[in-house]
Design a protein around this nucleic acid. Structure first.
Lengths: 308, 308
DNA sequence: GCTGTCCACAGGAATCTCCTATAGATCGGT
DNA sequence: ACCGATCTATAGGAGATTCCTGTGGACAGC
C-alpha cells in the first residue's frame, strides 16, 4: 500500500533532481530513497523517473503525482497541527458536567475564567441533574464533572469541594422562626423545583425522607422546573420553598426582593464534589477541574465564615 | 513518523466505534488495529480514545484529527487516480520529437489521430531540427522522436520509416530539364530554408558536400527559415529551391501555383527514422510511435508507387 | 582517458507489522 | 449475584520491511 514515506521520498527526489541529493536532504542513504521510489513506481504501476545516464528525468506521471503527493503530506502536517492545537487548548471544545443549580455557584465566572486563559476554546457545561451527569461520566461521554454526593462508584475519583446547607425560604417573616422542623415542612405550602427529576434528585429525596419520618408525605403544592421560578413564586407569597444557602449567596442582589430564610433543624446538608474517572485526565479537563475546585472551595470558605 | 496506515486504522475505529469492528472492516486482527492507534496516539502525544469499560469514546483530539486524516487519505487516493489516468492516457501530455519539416508529412493528421483515440490528452510535437531533437532524446527530455538519419548512438533504437528524395523546384519550366546536377545547383540562384540550422542540418550538409565536389561553394542567394517561405519565393520566380518530394506530396494542392520540380542526378536521399532510447517506452510514447511509424511507412509506399 | 558523480544491486542487521493466544474488564441477562 | 458474551490490553514470535554499507557500472566534464 502507498505510504507517506514513499511520497516524501518521491517529492524530495523531484525537488532535488536526484536520489543522492534527496537522500542528503532527508538524511538517508541513497539506496533507501532509490528503493522507496522504486516501490512507489511498482505500486502505481508506472515509471516516475526515466533513468537517463547518471541523472533522472521526471515523467508525465511524476508531474501528475506531484500535487497530490504534496496535498497528502500537507494534510498530514495539518492533522498534526490540529491535534496539537487541541492538546495545547488553543482550540477545541472543553466539556464539563455540572449539577443543575451549579449556575448559582459558578457558571458565568467559571466560563469567563476558562475563556480568558484559553481564548480559542469552546466551553460546554452540560447537565440537568447529578444522577444523569454521573451516568454520562460512567459511559465516558463526560470526562469530569461537579455533582452532588453520594457517588457510589469505586472507579471514580471523588473530591468533595463544598458542603451546603438546605434552608427554608419565605416572604413571610412570621414563618421564619429560628428552627424549621420536618413537621413544619410537612405542614407548609411549598413550591419545589426539579419537577422532572424529583425521583432521582438527591435533595428532593433527602427532604422526602425527613418529612416522611414525621408520618406525612412530602406533597408540595406547586412544582416547577427551575429554582429561580420557585423563588419568584415564594417572593410573591404564593408558597414557601427550600433551597441551598449557596444559591441565595450566589444570587445575592439578584434574589427576588422580600425573601428571608431560616435554617432547618435538624440541618440537612448536601456535599458537592468534583468527580472523574480514575486515570489520566486530559489537559482541558484538568484546567476546568482545577478552576472549579478552587472556586467551589473558596465559596465553601466564604459561606462557613458567614455562618461562624 | 505518522503513517497513512495509522490514519486508516484510526478512521475505521472512529467510524465503527471499536477496535474489533474496525479490525473486521479492514481485515486485520484486533490487536493490530489497537497497536496502530496506540502508536498514533503516542506520535501525536495525545489520547484519541478514552478506554471506558469495554468500549471506546473518541476524545476532542480525535474529532479534530478526523477531517485531516480523511483529507490525507483522499489526497492519496486522488494521487493514485491521477497517475492511473496518465498511465491509461486519459489525461496528461504526450510529448514527441519531430524534425522541422515533419508537419508536411504528418503533423495535423497525427495530432488528430492521437486526440481521437485519447480525447483527454495534451499533445506536444517539439523540434526545430533533427540534431537538436536527438540531443533532447539523449538528455531524456524526450522519449521518442522521428528525425532524419544518421543517428550515431548505440543506445538508441532506430527504425527507418521513410526514404525521401531531394528535388529541384522552380517556377521556370525551362530550368526543369531532366537531370539537375550539382554543377547546375552551384550555378543556380537558390533560396534555401533553415537559415539558423544550416550548420547542423543534414539536408543542407548533404547538398553542400555535393556542390563542393564541383569545386564551387554552396552559396544560396536567399536564406529563409521555413520551407513554405522558400517555396513561396520560388513560385514568384525570384529564385529556385530544393526540397523533399515528401514536402511537395504533403502540400499537394496547397503548393504555391506555378511550381514544377525535377529530380537531381545523382539522386540525394534522406532517411527518416523513429528513434527512442533502449528499454521500455511509456504507453503514451508507444501510441505515438506506432501511429507515426504507420503513417510514415504508408507515405513511403505511396511515394515509391508514384515514382515506380 | 581519467576522475568524480550518480544509479543499481546485494547482503545483512534492525525494526516494524501482524498474527495467535490469553488475561482482564465490563455489560446484559438470568 | 453470578455467567456468558464482548471488548481491550499484552505477550511472544514469524515474517516483512526498512535501511545501512559496500560495490559495480555508466556517464559527464576536464
Amino acid at each position: 500500500m502507498l505510504s507517506l514515506h514513499q511520497l516524501r521520498c518521491f517529492l524530495a527526489t523531484l525537488e532535488h533532481g536526484s536520489f543522492t541529493a534527496a537522500a542528503g536532504a532527508l538524511g538517508y542513504a541513497q539506496p533507501s530513497i532509490s528503493e522507496q521510489v522504486r516501490l512507489l513506481e511498482q505500486q502505481l504501476d508506472t515509471t516516475l523517473f526515466r533513468r537517463v545516464g547518471r541523472g533522472l528525468v521526471p515523467t508525465e506521471a511524476a508531474r501528475a503525482l506531484q500535487p497530490h503527493a504534496s496535498a497528502a503530506l500537507a494534510a498530514v502536517a495539518e492533522a498534526g497541527r490540529a491535534v496539537a492545537s487541541v492538546r495545547e487548548l488553543l482550540t477545541g471544545t472543553v466539556r464539563f458536567g455540572v449539577f443543575r443549580t451549579a449556575r448559582f455557584y459558578l457558571a458565568a465566572d467559571l466560563v469567563a475564567d476558562v475563556l480568558q486563559r484559553h481564548p480559542g476554546v469552546r466551553v460546554e457545561l452540560v447537565g440537568q441533574n447529578s444522577a444523569e451527569v454521573l451516568e454520562h461520566l460512567r459511559k465516558g461521554r463526560l470526562e469530569a464533572a461537579v455533582i452532588a454526593l453520594p457517588v457510589e462508584d469505586e472507579n471514580m475519583v471523588v473530591t468533595p469541594v463544598l458542603r451546603d446547607e438546605l434552608v427554608y425560604v419565605s416572604a413571610d417573616p412570621a414563618r421564619l422562626h429560628a428552627r424549621i422542623t420536618p413537621a413544619d415542612l410537612a405542614a407548609a405550602q411549598l413550591v419545589l423545583p426539579d419537577a422532572s427529576w424529583r425521583e432521582t434528585d438527591t435533595t428532593r429525596r433527602q427532604l422526602a425522607q425527613a418529612v416522611q419520618r414525621t408520618g406525612h408525605p412530602l406533597r408540595p403544592r406547586i412544582e416547577v422546573e427551575d429554582t429561580e421560578t420557585a423563588l419568584e413564586i415564594a417572593a410573591r407569597g404564593l408558597a414557601d420553598t427550600v433551597t441551598w444557602r449557596g444559591v441565595l449567596h450566589g444570587l445575592a442582589d439578584r434574589l427576588p426582593a422580600g425573601l428571608g430564610w431560616a435554617p432547618l433543624r435538624p440541618a440537612m446538608y448536601e456535599t458537592f464534589a468534583v468527580v472523574h474517572r480514575e486515570g489520566e485526565l486530559s489537559p482541558a479537563s484538568r484546567v476546568v477541574v482545577d478552576l472549579v475546585t478552587a472556586r467551589m472551595r473558596g465559596l465553601d470558605r466564604a459561606m462557613r465564615a458567614r455562618t461562624g
